[in-house]
Design a protein around this nucleic acid. Structure first.
Length: 745
DNA sequence: AGCACGCCGACT
DNA sequence: GTCGGCGTGCTC
């Protein structure tokens, strides 16, 4: 008698651009608890990793047609709330489910590696180290590290995040106080030590506003969303920390999403120092192995905290009690390629699915969130008191129209700002100058024939970078040699137009030769570590003038800054993107928040050629908070039927072949135009080329779809996908749908 | 997205 | 004669 093998039928999602699942057979008898486990399967001749979506009694296909799958996990490697979020996301963003699932996994799991810890490099104190008196170690950093090690081994990843250099670690090893260890084996022990308290340090006393906020959030039962609207320096983070503490005490875990730019040692330090529970992180600076470790850390369960950027949202966290989205207005929560999701939107879905609370925190909330607060979907909590009694800065708007032609104004610094920089630095104060434009000159041209040097891959003028002696494309990051001879007319003379941070720095060095200047932008700062080093130098007061782009605008505290100068606000006031005013208001508020954070009164000087501009004047009026301006901007949106009062999507195509990219969308558009009429309140635009039609050597076209109702938009996009599948793009044409775009194309 | 199958050009 | 170009169509 031959024993009859028992098979289960499973429905598997795969990493393919298909809106369908595939049935496989699996030897053995399985129940629903393997939904969410990975399998290795054969699909169309290639091996692939898939995820079990359903366990079924039988397939609609003949059993003989089913190939067999190999089970890679014993159970679900996701979590119920993550499953719900991903199913939602696939439908909402019209992105294939399998690809949503795959995006949610760390690369090693995507590649079929075992869901288990590898070696975790850590540092541990030696016996000598444990016995040594930290006070006897002169090197400050080494002493800090040893203090940590005395409590137990610490991962090198954590030490790195907290800003400790490998140098300091090695010095400790050399002294015989520390030793490199592999933590993987001892991990279980570390975990099971039942901590008597979730807190490592005594939390500070809250001010009344913070207490109200913490109590309100802690009182929430099940799902509830809070908009924590707190001015810069009002202690939003402390509110998060105390709510997290309450969540941990209930045995639950917390997920904290921050913008990429906020992953600083100070941020990590506050969490690592405060809590007696495992703190993990998930962000782009980690290796594949470290990402898997963080995934497993959380999957294990038990009260824990995960801090990370948008992709951390997909990490399985059993017993999730709280999601925090810090700086919720930040654009980096939106993914702009592949699975084009917005982490804020999906976080709300996940919180609902998990039945937990969610805090969206910002000094400058997005208009979407402001609207949600107004219509009662979010509970708004305000923090208006700045710590240490710091007052809000004084604004001064300077009209550049009749400015004398000084060397300064050529690099965007008017006489009054120039003088104020001199005064403040002479008093020993610091100055922060903001210009959102990197490089030396905006572009280079030939005065004889008028040729402007542009990127061969993009429709974009090349920026002059004098220090490097090269031309750079800020769209595709390609670099080019400085021309010697004009390729069009043979002239050997060139002229530059427009200024960037590099040129402003050059002027400042000539003008204030004895004042330390720190330029902070993507060209002058290569790594996170270097940024930290430079910011440290600023905080120690070695440099008096800071000049930078976005990089400098957010998060960092500079207590001695008494003057903030905004060199060019105008580019943010006159834009064809309806979100420009919102982001300008946010940026201005955030940059201004850098001034006067301690005892010193701060001033903000805004230079403009349009000082009569209404928004600008409202922004600088004392006592008009960002929120009031947000309300004004919302009213404008409402009158024009713009988001969040309508819903948008883009149909995008691109190809190396300009004609093919256009033709594909044109064909799609003519099909869709016939159907658009049956969708109420829906408008379908024509095919137009992107503002920057050519980038990365490809030609880009788009169609804008707008609807008054979300469900109508979604239904229409479903029809679009159907048509796309019947007539898929050929050759090298790529097609994509972007729902809720943040930038217009 | 892969990958196989299939039908036309310049190579030993 | 055949190696290989990439156009088309399918994947449990």
């Amino acid at each position: 008698m031959e024993s009859q093998a028992v098979f289960s039928v499973i429905e598997v999602v795969l990493n393919r651009p298909l809106f369908q699942c595939f049935d496989y057979k699996l030897e053995g008898s399985y129940a629903d608890d393997i939904v969410g486990a990975r399998v290795e399967v054969n699909i169309a001749g290639s091996r692939e990793i898939g995820i079990i979506y359903k366990v079924k009694q039988d397939s609609s296909l003949p059993f003989a047609k089913l190939k067999s799958a190999r089970l890679l996990d014993k159970k679900d490697i996701f979590a119920p709330d993550v499953h719900k979020m991903l199913s939602f996301a696939s439908k909402y963003y019209l992105y294939p489910l399998g690809q949503c699932y795959v995006s949610a996994l760390p690369k090693l799991l995507r590649d079929g590696k075992e869901a288990a810890y590898g070696e975790i490099p850590a540092l541990a104190a030696t016996k000598e180290g444990l016995e040594a008196d930290v006070k006897n170690i002169k090197a400050k950093v080494q002493a800090q590290i040893l203090t940590l090690l005395k409590e137990g081994p610490v991962r090198r990843k954590e030490l790195r995040e907290r800003g400790f250099s490998a140098q300091a670690e090695n010095a400790l090893i050399k002294k015989g106080f520390a030793v490199k260890v592999n933590l993987a084996l001892s991990l279980k022990a570390t975990q099971s030590t039942a901590a008597p308290s979730v807190l490592k340090e005594e939390p500070p006393v809250l001010n009344p506003e913070q207490s109200v906020a913490v109590e309100a959030i802690c009182a929430a039962k099940g799902y509830q969303a809070f908009l924590l609207n707190g001015v810069t320096g009002s202690g939003k983070t402390e509110v998060y920390l105390q709510v997290i503490a309450a969540v941990l005490r209930k045995g639950q875990s917390a997920l904290v999403l921050v913008p990429e730019i906020a992953l600083t040692p100070q941020t990590f330090e506050r969490f690592y120092n405060r809590f007696n529970v495992p703190v993990s992180s998930m962000h782009s600076a980690l290796s594949d192995r470290e990402r898997l470790d963080a995934f497993l850390d959380m999957q294990r369960g038990g009260p824990a905290i995960l801090i990370g950027t948008r992709s951390a949202l997909f990490t399985p966290i059993p017993n999730l009690g709280l999601i925090v989205i810090d700086e919720e207005h930040d654009g980096s929560f939106k993914q702009t390629d592949g699975f084009r999701y917005h982490a804020r939107s999906l976080a709300l879905v996940r919180a609902k699915a998990a039945g937990c609370k969610i805090i969206l925190g910002s000094a400058t909330p997005s208009l979407e969130s402001v609207e949600n607060a107004l219509c009662g979907k979010f509970t708004k909590l305000d923090l208006t008191i700045r710590a240490g009694g710091a007052s809000l800065p004084q604004f001064k708007l300077i009209d550049l129209k009749n400015e004398p032609l000084t060397p300064g104004i050529k690099t965007g610094i008017g006489l009054e700002l120039e003088n104020r920089i001199g005064e403040e630095t002479a008093r020993g104060n610091q100055v922060l100058l903001f210009l959102n434009r990197r490089g030396y000159s905006h572009h280079l041209f030939c005065p004889h024939c008028g040729k402007i040097f542009t990127c061969p891959n993009c429709d974009n003028p090349l920026t002059v970078h004098k220090n490097e002696g090269r031309l750079k494309c800020h769209v595709c990051d390609n670099v080019f040699a400085m021309p010697v001879v004009c390729p069009d007319c043979g002239s050997r003379e060139f002229m530059e137009n427009g200024y960037g941070t590099e040129q402003v720095e050059e002027f400042l060095r000539l003008r204030y030769p004895d004042v330390g200047i720190e330029r902070i932008d993507r060209d002058s700062v290569n790594s996170k570590a270097e940024l930290e080093k430079r910011l440290e130098r600023i905080k120690e007061g070695k440099s008096k003038i800071m000049l930078g782009t976005q990089m400098l605008a957010k998060g960092h505290d500079f207590p001695d800054v008494t003057l903030v100068g905004i060199l060019d606000i105008d580019s943010g006031l006159f834009s064809d993107d309806f979100r420009a005013l919102e982001s300008t208001a946010q940026l201005l508020t955030q940059v201004s928040g850098r001034a006067g954070r301690a005892q010193k009164q701060g001033d903000v000087i805004i230079q403009s050629y349009h000082p009569e501009n209404e928004l600008l004047n409202r922004l600088i009026t004392p006592n008009i908070a960002y929120f009031d301006i947000a309300l004004d901007l919302l009213l404008i949106r409402k009158n024009l039927n713009l988001p969040p009062f309508s819903y948008q999507a883009f149909l995008l195509s691109n190809s190396e072949d300009r004609v093919k990219a256009f033709a594909y969308l044109q064909e799609l558009n003519s099909c869709l135009q016939k159907k658009a009429g049956t969708y109420e309140g829906l408008s379908l635009g024509p095919v137009i080329s992107d503002k920057m039609e050519k980038r990365h050597n490809r030609y880009h076209f788009h169609i804008l779809v707008t609807a008054i109702r979300r469900d109508v938009l979604n239904a229409f996009l479903n029809e679009t996908v159907k048509i796309e599948q019947d007539n898929p793009p050929k050759n090298d044409v790529r097609f994509a749908i972007e729902v809720d775009p943040l930038f217009l194309y």
